[in-house]
């Protein structure tokens, strides 16, 4: 007579003592070795929230919010923020090294092989195919991430201005961030009653 496991048994309880450095390293090493192509947030949530129970859903989302708002890659920022929350600065460093080590080792092996075979026609043909595939992937990921934004005329205008400045006028990124950034934030500046009425016109 086996009862189905209660729902909270699938999410481990938060760790009682401090999480060991070895466990932090191993966890992020696995994420670093298995996550591909921008889907790292799903891997992180699966490992940190569902498997390890180091963060609850809410704390995971708050860490993700910080990681996305700041410079740097989501994956490494998340590793650093979560590592810091678990075991301070040393935890952050260990998590960061863990998540980057597998990819770093592999890319260096490929990079060294590439440097000594750059004129091999087979290598060139394969890499032309890989480059074309990367364009398709990047375009798809951009559309997926921007799905919400493409429904708003203001957002489409911000996207077009950004693409125009960067891709066609070749304005340096620092100036784009310093001009379009504040302008976009001002467009969406906090408004009191107006915002509530606009968001919910019923």
């Amino acid at each position: 007579m086996s009862h189905p496991a209660p729902a909270d048994a699938t999410v481990p309880a938060p760790p009682s003592g401090p999480v060991g450095f070895g466990e932090i390293f191993a966890t992020f090493l696995v994420i670093g070795a298995t996550s591909f192509g921008g889907g790292v947030v799903a891997y992180l949530r699966n490992a940190l929230v569902l498997q390890k129970g180091w963060l609850d859903e809410e704390r995971f989302l708050s860490a993700l919010e910080i990681a996305q708002a700041l410079p740097g890659l989501n994956a490494t920022n998340m590793a650093i923020i979560v590592g810091d929350r678990l075991r301070g600065i040393l935890g952050a460093i260990i998590a960061f090294i863990g998540i980057t080590l597998p990819g770093a080792a592999l890319i260096m092996a490929l990079g060294v092989a590439y440097a000594s075979n750059a004129h091999n026609p087979y290598v060139n043909a394969a890499l032309i195919g890989v480059g074309a595939a990367a364009v398709g992937m990047l375009a798809a990921v951009t559309l997926q991430i921007g799905r919400k934004q493409f429904g708003s005329l203001i957002d489409i205008a911000i996207i077009l201005v950004t693409v125009g400045l960067v891709s066609f006028l070749h304005v340096s990124l620092i100036w784009v961030l310093l001009t379009v950034g504040p302008a976009a934030v001002l467009i969406y500046r906090p408004r009191k009653e107006a915002a509530a009425a606009e968001a919910d016109p019923t």
Partner: peptide, 22 residues
Amino acid sequence: ASLQRGMAPLVVGLMAAGAIAI
């Protein structure tokens, strides 16, 4: 919230520019 709302389309624009660059 304004920061996130405003930066989201800028980031999408920068990603599109990244795809164009490649």
